[in-house]
Design a protein around this nucleic acid. Structure first.
Length: 122
DNA sequence: GGCATGACATTGC
DNA sequence: AGCAATGCCATGC
């Protein structure tokens, strides 16, 4: 039916707890579900996986991705909408460019979370 | 098993 | 509004 195959988050969280899934794979699954033109905060990704306090580990998982991955890591920002990688000379500008390419307005390394923030199921 | 390392969040000033 | 301090927890040595 829908082309966006949104994963069953509770199931992912359960699989994570049962250790049937590795943390970084679970993070990858969630991030891959974010529609183009929408963004999510690190804390939100962690919360969807049942670990609201593991926001930092989301970044850790994304950092472990391969350079040529198809996972849309650029759709993950800080809760306030700022780009976490803004200090990174290579990935920072790259992320901003990728977001703009999807129609997301990036002003001063920030996006309007209220406008482009994604909430599963809406 | 213990310790250090982060692409964060929250709180307090 | 911005900055520093503290808590978090998966990974790797």
């Amino acid at each position: 039916m829908s082309v966006d195959a949104t994963p069953d988050f509770p199931a992912l969280a359960a699989a994570l707890t049962a250790r049937e899934l590795r943390w970084r794979d679970a993070v990858e699954a969630v991030v891959s579900a974010i529609p183009a033109g929408r963004v999510l905060g690190y804390g939100q990704v962690a919360a969807l996986l049942g670990r609201p306090r593991a926001a930092r580990q989301v970044g850790y998982a994304l950092a472990a991705l391969d350079p040529g991955t198809t996972v849309p890591w650029w759709r993950v920002l800080r809760t306030d909408g700022s780009i976490a990688l803004q200090g990174d000379p290579t990935r920072g500008p790259l992320q901003a460019a990728a977001l703009r390419a999807e129609g997301v307005e990036v002003l001063d390394h920030r996006v309007d979370m209220a406008a482009v923030g994604w909430r599963p199921g809406r």
